[in-house]
């Protein structure tokens, strides 16, 4: 009668979920989510990870009202939201504070989804090491303001911290809070 488009179907979300798990398990590995996000892998990731049980802060108003409605996630301020979506090309506002979780509830630390121009290519070169990577893994990015990486550092304090999902049109790479980042450019 009425069909839902990807990424809103259960089948697509199941597939994207497996891909995101792989990306999180191997920080920096570039994973192709295909066309599920309609040219926006960030939307595919959020459609899979968020629902009415969580809140989302769309920092730079990247989602249109129809997408927001389909997501179903509640609204929250940047300091509280478990999910934050932002334009990676724009530097974060000075003094921006996100939810890094607490010692007792580190799992409440935010997942920060950053839209970039390119994931897997670009001038910004990172070396990622830590759990999931036996040897340091390189990740190149285009259209990510390095100030986001500084913001991540400001919020680090294991087990608290932010988990990053970097997304371009089709691809994502994840940098969980357990990963060490070294600039290599």
């Amino acid at each position: 009668m009425i069909t839902l488009a990807e990424p809103w179907t259960a089948a697509a979300q199941g597939r994207i979920n497996r891909a995101l798990l792989a990306a999180l398990a191997h920080p920096g590995e570039v994973v192709d989510l295909g066309a599920a996000g309609g040219g926006r892998a960030a939307l595919a990731a959020l459609a899979t990870l968020a629902d009415a049980a969580v809140a989302l802060c769309d920092l730079h108003r990247l989602l249109d009202p129809a997408e927001r409605s389909l997501l179903g996630a509640g609204e929250a301020g940047a300091a509280e939201a478990p999910f934050v979506l932002a334009d990676g090309a724009r530097a974060p506002d000075a003094g921006l504070r996100l939810n890094a979780g607490t010692q007792l509830r580190p799992e409440s630390g935010a997942t920060l989804v950053l839209e970039c121009a390119e994931v897997g290519a670009g001038a910004l070169a990172l070396q990622l090491s830590g759990p999931g990577n036996a040897a340091a893994r390189g990740l190149r990015l285009d259209g990510l303001d390095p100030a986001w990486l500084a913001l991540r550092e400001e919020h680090a304090g294991f087990p608290c911290g932010l988990d990053l999902v970097l997304a371009d049109r089709r691809r994502v790479a994840c940098i969980p809070r357990t990963t060490c980042i070294r600039r290599n450019d």
């Binding site: 009668m1 009425i2 839902l4 809103w8 129809a66 409605s69 389909l70 179903g72």
Partner: peptide
């Protein structure tokens, strides 16, 4: 009935049915 009604009209989901 819903199938019959929706046949001639533009329909879309505003939220994901769950």
């Amino acid at each position: 009935l819903a199938h019959r009604l929706a046949a001639g009209l533009p329909v879309r989901h505003l939220g994901v049915p769950q």
